[in-house]
């Protein structure tokens, strides 16, 4: 198992380096002289010089990148072009909100998707299956941000069950924390839940015809164990694969959702810094996102080892 993790890390780290290079290269896309373009509206010569300094534009490109990378490894991503706030601390301050939102949304997606997919897959062709399959098609297609708006309309405005906007740290009480996050997290969870449900349905329907499920039945295990233990662990592999892809998409969705729900997270920071073209901040956010996603992929890869013992010895 440890070997498996080590092997995955060996693939992940070079990828992360390439990713960081792409992130840094974004500066090269800035039209004209980046220092002038990015220094703000009608910049003074001092502001331009400061921006040039901050962006490290005085050196050859590859040297610039190297400096940036060395600093980034030490969690120093430079400072905002606007308020000179260190990028790292800005991100750190906003990470808890985004992680709360993401983890909650992923949990909802898994619970909803696996439950619906299992029910459908146990009885292919039944009405439960048809309802679940149809809902999944709709769930994949509806825009998550629109779902968020509709949830606000229904459960915050028309029936005021939950707050429409805002975020409360978990330290201030789990219930208020959850009540603020439930609508945005649900909005983010719908599409991944639909995809997971589809995949689970197919996998469960497939696995239930396997001989070892019949063996489990022949042992006299209760239905819940036949399905919950013997079928689901084998059905999990393809589901875990889509989980990785969906987690990626869900994290992208936090940008819009945090904006709609006024959640002070990394997504909102991404939006404001993109809008003001605060490149150091944008780069810091991108790198954070990439690390988060590569971590999730690593977890997914490692979980293969848990679900499929044959992978472990490779």
């Amino acid at each position: 198992m440890l070997l498996l993790i080590a092997r995955r890390l060996l693939v992940t780290i070079p990828l992360l380096i390439l990713v960081s290079f792409l992130i840094y290269s974004l500066i090269a896309l800035v039209p004209g002289d980046p220092a002038v373009t990015l220094a703000g509206q009608d910049p003074t010569p001092e502001q331009i010089a400061a921006a040039r300094e901050e962006l490290g534009l005085t050196d050859p490109f590859i040297v610039q990148y190297w400096h940036w990378l060395v600093n980034a490894v030490q969690l120093d991503f430079g400072a905002s072009l606007f308020n000179s706030e260190p990028v790292a601390s800005a991100i750190a301050a906003r990470l808890p909100a985004t992680l709360s939102l993401t983890v909650l949304a992923l949990l909802i997606a898994i619970l909803l998707g696996v439950a619906a997919g299992t029910l459908a897959g146990l009885r292919p062709g039944s009405w439960i299956d048809r309802v679940a399959t149809f809902s999944a098609s709709v769930g994949v297609a509806v825009p998550y941000f629109w779902v968020g708006m509709i949830l606000v309309l229904l459960f915050a405005i028309q029936t005021p069950l939950f707050p429409a906007i805002g975020y409360v740290p978990i330290g201030d009480g789990v219930l208020t924390w959850a009540s603020h996050l439930i609508l945005p997290a649900t909005a983010l969870a719908i599409a991944p839940a639909a995809v997971i449900a589809r995949q689970t349905r197919a996998a469960v329907a497939n696995v239930m015809t396997e001989d070892y499920v019949r063996t489990a039945e022949a042992k006299g295990l209760p239905r819940s164990r036949v399905v919950g233990k013997h079928a689901l662990k084998n059905a999990a592999l393809p589901v875990v694969t889509v989980f990785g892809i969906e987690a990626n998409r869900l994290i992208g969705g936090t940008v819009v959702i945090e904006q709609l729900f006024a959640i002070p997270g990394v997504g909102q920071l991404a939006f404001t810094s993109v809008f003001s073209r605060d490149m150091p901040m944008v780069q810091g956010v991108l790198l954070t996102t990439a690390v988060l996603i590569l971590l999730i992929n690593l977890l997914v890869d490692v979980s293969y080892g848990y679900f499929n013992p044959r992978v472990r010895q490779l």
Partner: peptide, 8 residues
């Protein structure tokens, strides 16, 4: 390129 969420 595929590491990042498309929108981000």
């Amino acid at each position: 390129l595929m590491t990042f969420p498309a929108v981000v």
